[in-house]
Design a protein around this nucleic acid. Structure first.
Lengths: 348, 348
DNA sequence: TTGTATGCGTTATCAA
DNA sequence: TTGATAACGCATACAA
């Protein structure tokens, strides 16, 4: 009764109706339950039945209706990703995001971008869990996300004073900056200055701390200027000037995104040969560092792989149902891209 | 019978059950149908009933279960966004993406990122329509998307030889480059060279064409070098050298993303004062242009607003059901950011 | 080993 | 003006 009516209704629209389990079941001469079980690899059934059903489903171009499946299994079928508003880091975060998409896709999960500014959007988002990256102090959306009670995996530490995330994937920024410092030393640098990105994000605080530790370990006088994650040209210029006007460092590590580009400009302007007279390294790699002249050495935070790692942890937690999640922590290694700006060949 | 069982099952898990229409209906003493109608603003009912139901729903923190709604209304409840793989444009595309998210959110639509490389993912994506941006020639995923038969709005033109998208929002790049050229002329430039991004994307071909037109209109000899959207430092360097070694231009417009940074480096290296002796402009704005020294003038393509415009058109098309969509076209204006690299004060 | 039947939360079609 | 009730496509407990 209902059958012909439905058919008729569909026929009128031009859209080709999606193939459903019913269709597959009818074609295969089995019940929907069997189709479902075959597809999910559940239940016991003749191997011949299973392969036959699978074959027919594939041939008919069947795809599961995620909305129906999610409704039935009481899941949202999506994970939310929240990125910092920080304009100058967008390329990095975009890559991160696609890393999340990579593994979400493998698990038939959609990725929903959670915009900044309106916490209520995050609270109502129909997602099974969240992935954060570089959650900034004072971000209201981050706070909302952490109070939902849903699973949250954070790429790098969350601000203090908020509920802990259920998972943490921490880039080893301390190791990253140390690698840069070792490299510079090896290339002849004796006085390495740091243009810091401040302490407002966990990672940049870590970088600063590790720099200070390293300096004292190696009996070097630390030289730190700056302290903001976002810098404009004028700021970079004056910071660099202040460094080069004082007792001149022979290497500068510029942590704020793309700041190293400005440092190089100023140095060259002063007639310094960047790469030999003055070594310059950025921290987080970005396309403009490789396009600068000379190309600038930087740490490669491997954002896409980082996103993958975060998403993998979240997916694992979601699968592990309501097992008491114990603030899982995982460390993520970061690599190093050597370019001409630290080629060295410096002689004292 | 089923009722107590469900309750019991839920109680055992710690998760607080989502409030459903049933709950609201029970609380309000009406039927689910009435709740649904009240929420959707449909059907005729006493205003008093409607406001009462709405109030109760709000108080109970009711949110519609999108999966159930989508299942019932036979929609996917999401729109897919596909971005070019082009690494160096990521910041721009990210912004674009958030523009799409902005308007999707207003319409309770999720945004699904469609990764590159695997067309089958695009074909099976459960989305009601797609938004593309700068679709590159030869992108297999773009091709797949355009052949799904679903609504597709493209931000800037799609490659020839493929099905036309149902909608097109076109940035007026011809006007953009002309604005740059007028500006440079006004600041004293007489010989303006172009480092082109080639013809592989519609927009960059438009830019090149408009430059040539403008040159002939103003009786200027066109000077065009380059032709690739992605450039590394060495390429930029050699292109700039070739320009500055010949009959010297007094202004250079560098179209590939961030290439202007390299141009400035080379010019300064040669002792040229960028901003007076040589004017330099980028095309698409990016953070590294504003951080360069001197900061570089560029066209501001307003990516977020651009994304909004595309998404708005798509949402409109989706609402207009199966009305014959007539390859809608809309023009999108682009703005202009003047910075020190073209300050001028040049005297012949 | 397979099929039947039920419900997930909504919307839509009736009837009241 | 409102209320029962039947789908939507799928997963699953239970019967066969």
């Amino acid at each position: 009764m209902a059958e012909p009516r439905r058919r008729a209704a569909r026929e009128t629209t031009g859209a080709t109706r999606q193939v459903t389990m019913d269709d597959v079941a009818r074609e295969a001469g089995v019940s929907v339950a069997t189709v479902s079980n075959a597809l999910l690899g559940r239940g016991r059934m003749l191997d011949s039945t299973r392969t036959r059903v699978l074959g027919i489903a594939a041939r008919m171009n069947y795809t599961v209706n995620q909305n129906a499946r999610n409704l039935r299994t009481a899941r949202a079928g999506a994970i939310g990703v929240h990125l910092p508003e920080n304009k100058s880091g967008l390329a990095y975060y975009m890559d991160f995001c696609f890393g999340v998409v990579d593994v979400a896709e493998e698990h038939s999960l959609a990725v929903t971008l959670i915009p900044g500014g309106r916490p209520e959007v995050a609270l109502r988002a129909q997602v099974d869990g969240f992935v954060l990256v570089d959650p900034p102090v004072g971000d209201v959306v981050v706070e909302a996300i952490l109070t939902t009670g849903k699973a949250v995996v954070s790429g790098d530490g969350t601000p203090p004073g908020l509920p802990e995330p259920s998972g943490l994937v921490a880039s080893d920024h301390r190791a990253g900056i140390r690698a840069v410092l070792e490299h510079l030393t090896e290339r002849g640098a004796r006085r390495v200055a740091l243009i810091s990105a401040g302490r407002s994000a966990r990672w940049s605080a870590d970088v600063e701390d590790a720099y200070l530790e390293w300096s004292s370990e190696h009996d070097r006088e630390p030289i730190v200027v700056g302290g903001s994650r976002l810098v404009d040209a004028a700021t970079v210029e004056s910071l660099t000037d202040s460094l080069l006007d004082g007792p001149k460092p022979d290497a500068i590590v510029a942590v704020p995104m793309d700041a190293a580009v400005g440092v190089v400009s100023v140095a060259r302007d002063r007639g310094l040969d960047v790469g030999s007279e003055l070594l310059v390294a950025g921290y987080t790699d970005s396309p403009s560092l490789s396009v600068s002249i000379p190309p600038i050495t930087a740490v490669d935070a491997a954002p896409r792989e980082f996103g993958r790692a975060c998403a993998r942890m979240l997916v694992r937690q979601l699968a592990d149902a309501d097992r008491p999640v114990p603030g899982e922590v995982e460390s993520f290694p970061i690599a190093f891209v050597e370019r001409a700006s630290t080629r060295g060949a410096r002689v004292e």
